[in-house]
């Protein structure tokens, strides 16, 4: 299973980016192979509008089943839900901490967007 975590840098020790749509990078972790890769989301970082939607679409393209981020707005959530991606919010500092919390079953799946658009 692939997990996408929003980050401001690369690798597991990068800081998490609490934003989803305008996160700089997506760190992709594969629970089977333990492989870590990064997907550049900086195009959306500077998008005039619809950043969350495009970011969600990009996340879906990775084949991920889980997204871990700080917050998720309503339009992005709609796309993620449509793509069958489960969303988890956390205030963890680093990607590794967020991932550990998730793998230890300490995160609760969010049932909807937790912020308004453009928060």
């Amino acid at each position: 299973m692939k997990i996408v975590i929003t980050a401001s840098g690369e690798g597991l020790d990068a800081d998490m980016d609490s934003r989803f749509g305008r996160a700089k990078n997506f760190i992709i972790f594969d629970t089977e192979t333990k492989e870590v890769s990064a997907l550049d989301n900086s195009v959306n970082l500077n998008a005039a509008q619809g950043a969350g939607i495009q970011a969600a679409s990009n996340a879906a393209e990775t084949g991920a089943e889980v997204l871990i981020s700080g917050h998720c707005g309503p339009k992005a959530f709609r796309v993620l839900k449509e793509a069958g991606i489960r969303v988890y919010n956390t205030e963890a500092k680093t990607v590794r901490q967020a991932l550990d919390l998730f793998l230890q079953d300490k995160l609760v799946e969010s049932s909807g967007s937790d912020v308004e658009g453009h928060w």
Binding site: A47, Q49, G50, I53, Q54, A56, S57, A60, V79, A83
Partner: peptide, 9 residues
Amino acid sequence: RFNAITMLG
């Protein structure tokens, strides 16, 4: 231009 349509697959 406005990201009003996105492809999901």
